[in-house]
Design a protein around this nucleic acid. Structure first.
Lengths: 184, 184, 184, 184
DNA sequence: GATGAATGAGCATTCATTCAT
DNA sequence: GATGAATGAATGCTCATTCAT
């Protein structure tokens, strides 16, 4: 998968209808990704958004472009909670636990996002970089002596990717993983 | 995924060539699953086995039937190492570490198996049950106070499913997870 | 365009229905090529033949395979007339004129064939070679001192490709071309 | 192909920017036709010209309109050389040879133009008429006793359309054709 | 039982054309 | 007039599954 231009939505001024469509597409894709995963047919996403298929290609030339855009948008929301927690919590470790709770709670409901975090496909590098930028301030203080944050992020993604099923509590497992790291 | 009859291959007496074909199919599928994943085209597996596609359907009506059969077969091999380790190692924890090393080493080279372990699809229940039967004697002594072994198995599967990529050491991460459990 | 296996129809023994389908495909393709050219949609050819689209891909993995097969078959018929003429005509030149008449008459009614003759795409090399093998005995005696037969064949293809239209007599023009060569 | 109104660009007075755009379009189309042929995507031409796609439709309602306009424009340049040669060369035949050399050299570099010359589509009638008007004075003196000039022009187009490939020298073949005509 | 031929639904992608801005 | 966003039909190709031999 290639990402043709990760920032394309930032550079051009756009017509109002185009902007509206792009938003509709992001919402539709987010919805479809939940039910059908990130490999859902383009047609389904187009139908959900109420646009033609070619409109998706105009806005997001490759599937990776769309995926990145969908989650970048959602991560913006998630990211806001991070720094705030660091300062407000009783201890760095408490901050981390709360953040992890929120983070996992968020990721678990978006199976697509978990898959993206788990993946090593270079097309997600921008999104991964973005994630790391936000995660590191929160957890680096307490945990990762000698632990590659990128690997940790992928591990969290992996554990969450298995979630949403009975007898599998991703939040708990991520907690265990974090606890294991702390000892190191 | 549905499994039509998990034990179908046990009930009927069979012709010699049928039995030979089934074995060829299991070997072929194992090979193909490694390179192309468990979703590999039926044709590829048939070609690898040197049989017609319909022969696969006769032996394994659904894809899940085949997957289960393939890994059940491979687990037979893996399982042998377990009990032996428990008795020979210096301590239960040492036995566990060694077992985990072997186990992860095994799973990581079969991405298909990792996916199967990660999955909660009921069609894998027989395989999961089989796995747990073998795993529990090994690790239950040392670790899982209050930890659902099934969940743990799926977690290991998840961590391994993300593996085989640069900057991601599944063996290390599973070790961290185990370490985290031990403290609990 | 690639030709995966120009001789694939010769190597395997085949089931009767497969052979029947292949013939139906060749006939259908020949028909469709006349009306829609060699770039006609696969679906149209499949429909004309009364088969599914995938059947075409089974028999002729690439479009070039199909094109070559269609015309190779037709050339078999054409080729028969060649050697016979050489011996029966009054003079080599007379033989050539008659042959050219037949040849052009044949090619002109298959616009697809003309296009194939005109093309330099390497995928047609086998067909071109086949053509040259048949053409050279007929015309080489009289004409082509220093004339590359391959170029001549392509020229005839070009002149015929423009044919089938009012105020354009490919037969006449090819005659003129041949006359021009004779002087050389 | 239909040409909606071959002279539409002559009837209306126009804004300066419209005229500028039209010229930019002709240049852009000429460029794109060379590299991608006359069937190149409208978008490519618009991009090359730096205008929107709809602008092309405004100026040239059908693709044929654009093609005709492009080559009419280029023929203007070519035509200038014709009469001049007739008077300056040593003999009518020498003039013809030189003219053919120039002509073929020109056409061969514009595969689109060759295709247009080869075609009998009525939409090109105006362009064909225009061509004949210029060609006839040059070659009619020496050659075409009983040869329809229109047919000859299309033949030259056909021979050139096959060109630009290895082992195919359109200039040579057109020379052969002309030589053949001379004898007649 | 085994075979592999046939099927046709499903999907990504391209592109001419229209239309709101 | 100019723009470029939206449209959706068209097409190549893949693959699971069925069925005649």
């Amino acid at each position: 998968m290639r990402v043709s231009d990760p920032d394309h939505q930032a550079v051009r001024p756009r017509r109002a209808d185009a902007r509206r469509n792009e938003q509709a597409l992001l919402d539709a894709a987010a919805t479809v990704f939940v039910t059908s995963g990130v490999e859902a047919p383009i047609r389904d996403i187009a139908a959900e958004a109420g646009v033609g298929t070619a409109t998706i290609y105009r806005h997001f030339p490759t599937r990776a472009d769309l995926i990145v855009a969908v989650y970048r948008h959602q991560v913006e929301i998630l990211a806001a909670a991070g720094p705030e927690l660091v300062t407000s919590a009783d201890s760095p470790y408490a901050a981390l636990r709360q953040w992890i709770d929120q983070f996992v709670g968020f990721v678990v409901t978006k199976q697509g996002l978990a898959a993206v975090l788990q993946s090593a496909d270079p097309c997600y590098d921008p999104l991964h970089a973005y994630f790391l930028e936000r995660l590191e301030p929160v957890w680096s203080g307490e945990i990762v002596a000698g632990q590659d944050p990128y690997e940790l992020m992928r591990a969290v993604g992996s554990l969450c990717a298995g979630g949403g099923k009975p007898r599998y509590d991703a939040r708990h497992l991520v907690g265990v993983l974090i606890a294991g790291l702390r000892r190191g």
